[in-house]
Design a protein around this nucleic acid. Structure first.
Length: 851
RNA sequence: GGGCGCAUAGCUCAGCGGGAGAGCACUCGCCUUACAAGCGAGCGGUCGCAGGUUCAAAUCCUGCUGCGCCCACCA
C-alpha cells in the first residue's frame, strides 16, 4: 500500500471557525454530494428524508435527527454506495393554510375562479380577502420559498450531505399530480371508497379527522344523574357527563346479565323534558360498574354510541351541527309539544351553553337527581385542536388500511415484521397501532388548502349528485382542481346545473400526500427511470411519534401500489429533552435557535452532540457536550498539524517498530467495530469507539513516538513512526468524516487530493497488511508504564519534562518482552536517565520511579 | 387496564456474565518545541429495591418501586 507522494501544506495556525464558510460552497461547486443517476439500484443507497414542516424555523430536534441520518448517508457514500439523499418541504396542510391566511390577510374560497392577476392586500388587515384555491396555493408557494431558503441555509451549514438539486415541495405540481394519481389507482382497485358514516369532527376547523390524528386529554367533567320514566312509572337513573345530548337520546342500554334491568329489556322509557320514547336494550358493551350501569345512547356522544347505534340499528337523532352548536330544528322523534318548547330553548346554543341550560331545566323539573359529581376523564381531541371532537354523520373518502379487513391487517402486520427497525423494539409500536385500528383511513378533509380529491359527480335532472358514479380526470391532466376545472366530457357552464356535474370540494389529508414521499422524491410516474433506481428505498429516518401516521401510511400506500415495503430500514430518532427531562417544547426550542448553536459552537461540535444520542433514545439538550465536540475538533486539527509537520513517510514498508504496528493493530479493531456499528445503524457507537481510540492515540502513542519521529534515533526508526502516523491519520480522518465533515475535510485538504467524503471507508485488512502479526499489548504496556512515570511527577508537583533518575520495571518474562519493544520510546517520552528491568514470577508489570 | 423503554459517580452517559468506566464539574499540579480554549494527576459509586440462576451477576431470570412514552378507558 504505497500512496502517491503529495504536497503537504499545513497552515501555521489552525481554527475550527470559518470552516463552514469555506467548505459549504466548495462542496457545492465540486458537486461532492450530487446523485449520479446512471447508477443501478444495487449501487444506490436511497433515503426517504422527512420533509420538515415549513412553518417558522427549524428547531434543535431537527438538527439532532437530521445529523443522525447524515452520518449514515456519509458512511454509505464512503462505502461506495451512490447515495440518493433528497429533501422536501412539507408546505401542504393546516399549518401553512393558517400562516398564509395571517401573513397575507386572505382566505381560500374554492368556489371562486382562478384570478391570474390576483393581488393580496397590502397589509393583512381586518378585511380578509377571499381568493381561489389556485391563488391560495400560489401565495403559499410565495411565502414558503422564503422559509425554505432559510431552512436550506441551516441544513447546509449543519453539513447535511443532501443533494440540493433534488428538492421538492409537498404542495408543488408534481407532488399534487403524484398524490392524485396514487389516489385514482387506489380508487380503480377498490382500495379507496366513500361512505356516509358517523365521523369524528373538529368543530373549530370544521373538518373530519382521522383516528391517527386523535389524542386524549384529561378534562374536568361531571356525572349528572338524570331520571328517565320507566314503563311502569318508576324512575330509571342514568348517569351521564353529556346531559346536553338528552334530546339526541335514542336508547338505553344495560348489560344482558345486569339483574337490575332484566325487567326493562324490550320495553320503552320516556326521556325527561323531551318525552321521547326510547327502547331499553341489552348489550355486552354496557358496563354494570359505570354510573348506574345503564347508559343513554345518543347520536353521537362517543364511539361507544356509534357501536351501539350501528349494532342495534337505532334511530338517528342528530342535534350537534358542524359548527359545534345545537341545530335549529328539533331532531326527528321529538314530536311532543313540551319537548319542542324545551328544545327551542337550546337551539343554536354551543355545547357548553346547552349543557348549562339543560341542567337548569332538569333541576326545575325535578329530573336531576342530586348534584353533579365532578370527575376528570379523558376526552378525544384533534391533535391540533382545542375543543373536544364531536361525532357527526357525513360522506367521506376512505382508503383501506386493515382496520376493517383482517386479511389486509395481517398483511400489513407482516410488512412491519419484514422491516428492519433501529432500534428493534420500535417495531412493537407499529404492531400495537395496526392491531388497534378500528376503521379504515379517513382521507378527506373539509378544508380548502391541500391536494384536491380529483373527483366530480354527475348531477341528475333534479340536480341531485350521483355519488356512486364519480367522474375521474384523465391521467394526463393531473394535477386537477375539480372546483375550477370541468371533468372530461363536460363544460364549465354545466357546473352545478341539473344534468351537469358538481366537484368534490374536499382535499386529501396531508398524510395522504406525505405517505407518498418515496414516490414524490423518486418522481414516480413522472420519471420512471429514476424511480427504478431508488425504489424501494433503503432508509426511512423519522421520529417515534409519527410511526402511526407517516410510517404506517407509507407502508399502506406502498403495499397497495407495489406489493412491497417502501424501504428496508427504518431508523427512529428520539426526542430532545429539556434539562428537566421534559420533551423540549417548540417555544423553548425557538429560544435556542439552531443557527445560534451552529455559530456559537461550530457545526461539527453540534453534530458531535447530536451523534452522541443513541438511535431511538431521548437525549438531553446539552451545550456542555457541544463544547466537548468543539474540543475534539480542535484536537483533530492540532494533532493533524503535528503529524503532518513531522514529515510524511508514505512508504508503509518502513513501519517496522513493534509499537507502531501495535497501534495500527488496535486501530484495525476500531475500524472493525465502527464498521459493524454503522452497519447496524449505531452511529453513536461508531463515534464513541473512534473518539476513545483517538484520545489514547494523542495522549499515549503520539507522546511516546514524538522523539523518535523527530529523528533522534535515526531516519529508519523515524520513518517507521512517520509511516504509521500517516496511515493512522488517514484512517482516523475517514472514521471521523461522517461526524465532523468540516474538520476532517479541512485536514484532508492539507495533504490529500479530492474530498474525504468521496474517499473510501477504511478497512481493517489494509491496516493488517501494514502492521502484520503483532501483539497489540505493546502499546498498552508502554502506556501503562509512562502513566506511572507521569503520576510520580505529578505527585511530586514536577513538570512532565523533569528528569527521572531511574525507572525500575519488574514483571514476568512475557510482560517484560512487551515492554522491551517500546523501551526506548518510554525512556525518551519520560525523560528517563536509566531503566532497570527485573524479571519476577508474577504475571504483572510494576514500575518504580526514582526522581 | 395492556404494552414498550429507562434506572450505573453531583451532571450527561458507555459497559450488558469474570477487573466498576468515560466526559463534564470539582481538587492538586504543570508555560511540555501540535494544542494553556492545553496537558498531567486525583477525589468521587451497596451499578433503583428484593429474590433467583451461576463457581462467578451492573450484566441473565422473576417480582417490586420510580420516571418517560405508546395504546385503551370516555355512560
Amino acid at each position: 500500500m504505497t500512496s502517491e507522494p503529495h504536497l503537504v501544506r499545513v497552515p501555521d495556525q489552525v481554527s475550527v471557525d470559518g470552516l463552514e464558510d469555506k467548505w459549504v460552497p466548495a462542496w457545492e461547486k465540486e458537486g461532492v454530494y450530487r446523485f449520479d443517476r446512471t447508477k443501478a439500484r444495487q449501487q444506490v443507497y436511497s433515503i426517504d428524508t422527512p420533509p420538515p414542516t415549513v412553518s417558522g424555523s427549524l428547531h434543535v430536534g431537527h438538527v439532532f435527527s437530521y445529523t443522525h441520518t447524515d452520518t449514515v448517508a456519509r458512511y454509505q457514500r464512503m462505502r461506495g454506495r451512490e447515495v440518493f439523499y433528497p429533501i422536501g418541504w412539507d408546505d401542504n396542510g393546516l399549518p401553512t393554510e393558517r400562516r398564509v391566511q395571517n401573513y397575507f390577510g386572505v382566505r381560500c374560497d374554492p368556489s371562486l375562479p382562478y384570478d391570474p392577476s390576483f393581488v393580496p392586500p397590502d397589509k393583512p388587515g381586518k378585511d380578509v380577502m377571499a381568493c381561489s384555491r389556485q391563488n391560495f396555493i400560489e401565495l403559499c408557494e410565495r411565502l414558503t420559498v422564503i422559509d425554505e431558503q432559510a431552512f436550506e441555509e441551516v441544513c447546509r451549514r449543519l453539513g447535511l450531505s443532501i443533494d440540493w438539486a433534488m428538492t421538492y415541495q409537498t404542495i408543488d405540481k408534481t407532488a399534487r399530480a403524484i398524490s392524485q394519481r396514487a389516489f385514482l389507482h387506489n380508487l380503480a382497485r377498490g382500495e379507496a371508497y366513500q361512505a356516509e358514516a358517523p365521523t369524528l369532527w373538529d368543530v373549530t376547523f370544521r373538518t373530519a379527522v382521522a383516528q391517527a390524528e386523535l389524542e386524549d386529554r384529561d378534562r374536568p367533567a361531571a356525572y349528572h344523574n338524570i331520571a328517565f320514566n320507566g314503563p311502569d312509572g318508576t324512575k330509571i337513573s342514568i348517569a351521564t357527563t353529556r346531559p346536553e345530548l338528552l334530546p339526541a337520546c335514542v336508547a338505553l342500554v344495560a348489560h344482558p346479565d345486569d339483574k337490575r334491568y332484566q325487567e326493562l329489556f324490550g320495553r320503552a322509557a320516556l326521556s325527561p323534558l323531551f318525552n321521547v320514547k326510547v327502547p331499553v336494550i341489552s348489550h355486552r358493551l354496557a358496563d354494570p360498574d359505570k354510573g348506574s350501569g345503564i347508559a343513554m345512547v345518543c347520536t353521537f356522544g362517543d364511539l361507544n354510541d356509534v357501536t351501539w347505534w350501528r349494532e342495534l340499528g337505532l334511530d338517528t337523532r342528530t342535534i350537534v351541527g358542524r359548527d359545534g352548536r345545537l341545530i335549529p330544528e328539533p331532531p326527528p322523534g321529538l314530536d311532543d309539544d313540551t319537548g319542542r318548547t324545551a328544545y327551542a330553548d337550546l337551539a343554536g346554543a354551543t355545547i357548553h351553553a346547552a349543557r348549562e341550560r339543560i341542567v337548569a331545566l332538569l333541576r326545575d323539573s325535578g329530573d336531576l337527581q342530586g348534584e353533579p359529581e365532578p370527575i376528570v376523564h379523558a376526552v378525544k381531541f384533534y391533535e391540533r385542536g382545542d375543543r373536544p371532537l364531536e361525532i357527526v354523520s357525513s360522506r367521506q373518502w376512505y382508503i383501506r388500511n386493515g382496520g376493517r379487513d383482517d386479511d389486509l391487517r395481517a398483511a400489513l402486520l407482516d410488512r412491519g415484521n419484514q422491516l428492519e427497525w433501529h432500534p428493534d423494539h420500535m417495531r412493537v409500536r407499529y404492531a400495537n397501532w395496526v392491531n388497534g385500528l378500528t376503521g379504515d383511513w379517513l382521507i378527506s378533509r373539509q378544508r380548502f388548502f391541500g391536494v384536491p380529491i380529483p373527483i366530480w359527480y354527475p348531477l341528475d335532472g333534479h340536480g341531485q349528485a350521483l355519488y356512486d358514479k364519480p367522474l375521474v380526470p384523465d391521467d394526463c391532466d393531473l394535477p386537477v382542481d375539480p372546483t375550477s376545472e370541468p371533468p372530461p366530457g363536460y363544460h364549465e357552464d354545466q357546473r352545478d346545473q341539473p344534468d351537469g356535474f358538481v366537484a368534490d370540494a374536499d382535499v386529501m389529508d396531508t398524510w395522504a400526500t406525505s405517505s407518498l414521499t418515496p414516490h414524490v422524491a423518486g418522481r414516480w410516474s413522472v420519471d420512471g427511470d429514476l424511480f427504478e433506481r431508488v425504489f424501494p428505498m433503503d432508509l426511512r429516518p423519522q421520529g417515534h411519534d409519527i410511526i402511526r401516521t407517516w410510517l404506517f401510511s407509507t407502508v399502506v400506500r406502498s403495499h397497495l401500489e407495489h406489493d412491497s415495503l417502501p424501504w428496508q430500514h427504518v431508523a427512529i430518532s428520539g426526542w430532545i429533552l429539556d434539562p428537566d427531562r421534559k420533551k423540549m417544547s417548540k417555544s423553548k426550542g425557538n429560544v435556542v435557535t439552531p443557527v445560534g448553536l451552529l455559530e456559537r459552537h461550530g457545526s461539527d461540535a453540534v453534530r458531535y452532540w447530536a451523534a452522541s444520542g443513541r438511535p431511538g433514545t431521548d437525549t438531553a439538550f446539552d451545550e456542555a457536550q457541544m463544547k466537548v465536540g468543539r474540543r475534539l475538533a480542535v484536537k483533530i486539527l492540532n494533532a493533524s498539524r503535528f503529524v503532518l509537520g513531522l514529515g510524511i513517510a508514505d512508504d508503509v514498508a518502513a513501519v517496522t517498530d513493534a509499537l507502531d504496528r501495535a497501534m495500527l493493530a488496535e486501530l484495525a479493531a476500531v475500524v472493525n467495530d465502527a464498521t459493524s456499528s454503522f452497519e447496524g445503524y449505531d452511529y453513536a457507537r461508531a463515534l464513541e469507539r473512534t473518539e476513545k481510540f483517538f484520545w489514547t492515540f494523542c495522549d499515549d502513542y503520539l507522546e511516546l513516538v514524538k522523539v523518535r519521529a523527530y529523528g533522534e534515533y535515526g531516519e529508519q526508526r523515524a520513518n517507521s513512526a512517520r509511516g504509521a502516523l500517516a496511515v493512522a491519520l488517514s484512517t482516523l480522518l475517514r472514521l471521523f468524516a461522517p461526524f465532523m465533515p468540516f474538520t476532517t475535510e479541512e485536514v484532508w485538504s492539507w495533504w490529500r487530493p479530492g474530498s474525504v467524503h468521496r474517499s473510501s471507508w477504511p478497512v481493517a485488512t489494509d491496516l493488517y497488511a501494514v502492521c502484520g502479526d503483532v501483539d497489540p499489548r505493546v502499546l498498552s504496556t508502554a502506556a501503562s508504564v509512562i502513566r506511572t512515570v507521569r503520576k510520580s511527577k505529578s505527585d511530586a508537583k514536577l513538570s512532565m519534562r523533569a528528569e527521572v533518575e531511574r525507572l525500575t520495571v519488574r514483571g514476568s518474562r512475557g510482560f517484560l518482552g512487551l515492554f522491551e519493544e517500546a523501551r526506548h520510546d518510554v525512556q525518551a517520552a519520560g525523560h528517563i536517565a536509566q531503566i532497570d528491568v527485573v524479571t519476577t514470577s508474577e504475571e504483572a508489570l510494576v514500575a518504580e520511579v526514582s526522581l
